[in-house]
Design a protein around this nucleic acid. Structure first.
Length: 395
DNA sequence: TCTGGGGTCCTAGGACCC
DNA sequence: TCTGGGGTCCTAGGACCC
């Protein structure tokens, strides 16, 4: 594989930083974003920002400022638990519309400099800088890595000018390493790593820094005495394969050595669209039947709205249900033809519901539509039989 | 008063077809 | 009567990520 120059750009504490643009007086204080939607906010700038200790109810931290992280709270942590660690931290509700607007702004700013962008969600992207770096080399730039770094400086400036926000950038020969590198000098850093930097910079890190090694795999590696990426790189690949299977075991070994040939993918179609909700309090399948039914229908209406707005229809309807003990079950069924109709989705999901045991309280309900297609673009298989009888020019 | 909401990908077994 | 493969679709669960 020829030499590539891949950047990973990660916005710093994104949601919280967007909120600080709106509430600049909170800068320097511990602030977390999360919890339930704000109830029809009146004049936000004048109202008093609640503290974490005043919060009660379900919910997790979505983002914490670096000041809040210093107190031990982090994203994904339950708010009630976070309130014990940082009772005086300020709590702001999430405003996803605003985050999406900022996301679009920063991505457009990057796109004005480099075209090969892979979207990785609202606050991060990969950028393939190989072409611009090679173009500079052709014009006699001495060190391509220095050129890559200077492009990163340009990217950071463009993002700041477009949004007022800072980001961190990692540049390495591939996505796997760049993702790790962008975290090394947060916030606001640029980290360039070449082949020779893998051993000194990557190997001392714990295995969970690798994108794709989560809590489960990390714990299982720990039982084998493997905690750092370096230890993983020195492990016997055969041992990894016996514990993790042929595919994942081999991948673990390659990843530890910094090998990754995945391309930067600039376009992809969604595979599924879903809506789910966790209730304020667990609901009883019989006693709260009416409320559950209303919520269920509402989820179907919302998912149908999403499908219609984005121009998709789907053939596989899925139901997700989480019990009070956090056990989650899913059921799905496949229709004869794709749909984007709320009533059809509700019927199919209702059939799925009949197949799950309703013997305990329910915490979460979700509806998903998969096997998506663009209904406008019909393949032969999608053509409804009735289309043959559609009145036409000669009827 | 532990544990959100939106996704992707993988595995594994069974049905069904050739 | 016994016994092949391979391929695709469907379903359920789980790991992981942002």
């Amino acid at each position: 594989m020829p030499q590539r120059y891949i950047a990973h750009l990660d916005m710093d504490a994104f949601y919280a930083s967007v909120e600080l643009l709106r509430y600049p007086q909170l800068r320097g204080q511990p602030v977390v974003v999360g919890g339930r939607r704000r109830a029809a906010q009146n004049d936000a700038a004048d109202s008093v920002i609640p503290k974490l200790r005043e919060y009660s109810g379900r919910g997790v931290i979505t983002t914490a400022t670096y000041e809040a992280r210093a107190l031990g709270v982090h994203s994904g942590m339950g708010l009630m638990k976070a309130a014990k660690l940082a009772p005086d931290a300020l709590l702001l509700p999430a405003d996803f519309d605003q985050y999406r607007r900022c996301s679009r702004l920063f991505k457009d700013a990057v796109r004005a400099i480099a075209l090969q962008i892979e979207d990785r969600g609202i606050d991060e992207i990969y950028v393939d800088l190989t072409e611009p770096v090679m173009a500079a080399a052709a014009e006699g730039a001495p060190d391509p890595w220095a050129r890559a770094r200077s492009i990163a400086v340009d990217l950071q400036r463009a993002v700041r000018e477009a949004t007022g926000l800072s980001c961190s950038i990692g540049i390495t020969p591939n996505k796997l390493l760049s993702k790790i590198a962008s975290e090394l000098e947060k916030p606001g850093g640029i980290t360039v790593l070449r082949e020779a930097d893998i051993a000194p910079r990557i190997w001392p890190l714990i295995v969970n820094k690798i994108n794709g090694i989560g809590p489960k795999a990390g714990a299982q590696l720990a039982t084998l005495g493997i905690r750092t990426i370096g230890e993983l790189a020195q492990a016997d690949p055969a041992l990894l394969i016996t514990h993790f299977g042929k595919s994942y075991g081999a991948w673990l070994f390659d990843a530890a050595h910094g090998r990754d040939e995945r391309p930067v993918v600039t376009y992809s179609e969604p595979k599924s669209i879903s809506r789910e909700t966790t209730f304020e309090h667990d609901l009883h399948p019989v006693r709260d039947r009416e409320q559950l039914s209303r919520i269920f229908t509402d989820l179907c209406v919302r998912v149908a709205g999403d499908l219609q707005r984005k121009g998709y229809a789907g053939k596989t309807i899925g139901l997700k249900l989480r019990y009070d003990n956090f056990k989650t079950v899913t059921r799905d069924c496949t229709l004869d033809a794709p749909t984007q109709d709320a009533a059809a989705i509700r019927r199919a999901a209702g059939e799925c519901l009949k197949r799950v045991p309703l013997d305990r309280r329910i915490r979460l309900l979700g509806v998903r539509v998969g096997a998506l297609r663009k209904p406008g673009v019909q393949t032969r298989d999608d053509t409804p039989a009735s289309a043959a009888h559609t009145p036409g020019l000669f009827d």
